[in-house]
Design a protein around this nucleic acid. Structure first.
Length: 113
DNA sequence: GATATGACCGCTG
DNA sequence: CCAGCGGCCATAT
């Protein structure tokens, strides 16, 4: 497994309950601002390797673009609503208020190890 | 090794 | 404000 994926998973695991973030924000935080797409790919593989709360990761508009990759089409939305996040038309309501940015919420990312 | 695909993002018009 | 286009990066075939 590439380190990039691991870095992504590390961040996703740190998302607080009831908050969400975006693919691009994660990509920026781990030092790959142009790799937002690959973050999505990492999420696809996430459930295979580790258990990360992928339902807390959406695109920059707050749209649940990845809901079809969950077991049920409604699962992602239900998980979010369980945490107090309202979803309407596959989109998070008041996305700005739930958005959690790792670049400001976490200490600067340590590039190595 | 080349080509195609995707849970994206930002800039233009 | 909405739509379209290109770029970027890691897998899959």
């Amino acid at each position: 497994m590439s380190r990039f994926f691991n870095q992504v998973y590390q961040v996703v695991k740190k998302i607080p309950e009831g908050r969400v973030t975006t693919y691009g924000a994660i990509a920026r935080y781990v030092g790959h601002p142009q790799s937002a797409r690959t973050v999505g790919y990492a999420m696809n593989a996430a459930h295979t390797y580790t258990d990360v709360p992928a339902h807390r990761v959406v695109n920059r508009k707050g749209l649940l673009t990845g809901k079809h990759h969950f077991q049920g089409a409604k699962l992602m939305q239900q998980l979010l609503e369980n945490e107090g996040i309202s979803v309407n038309q596959d989109q998070i309501v008041d996305f700005d208020r739930f958005f959690w940015d790792p670049t400001t919420a976490l200490p600067p990312f340590e590039i190595e190890i």
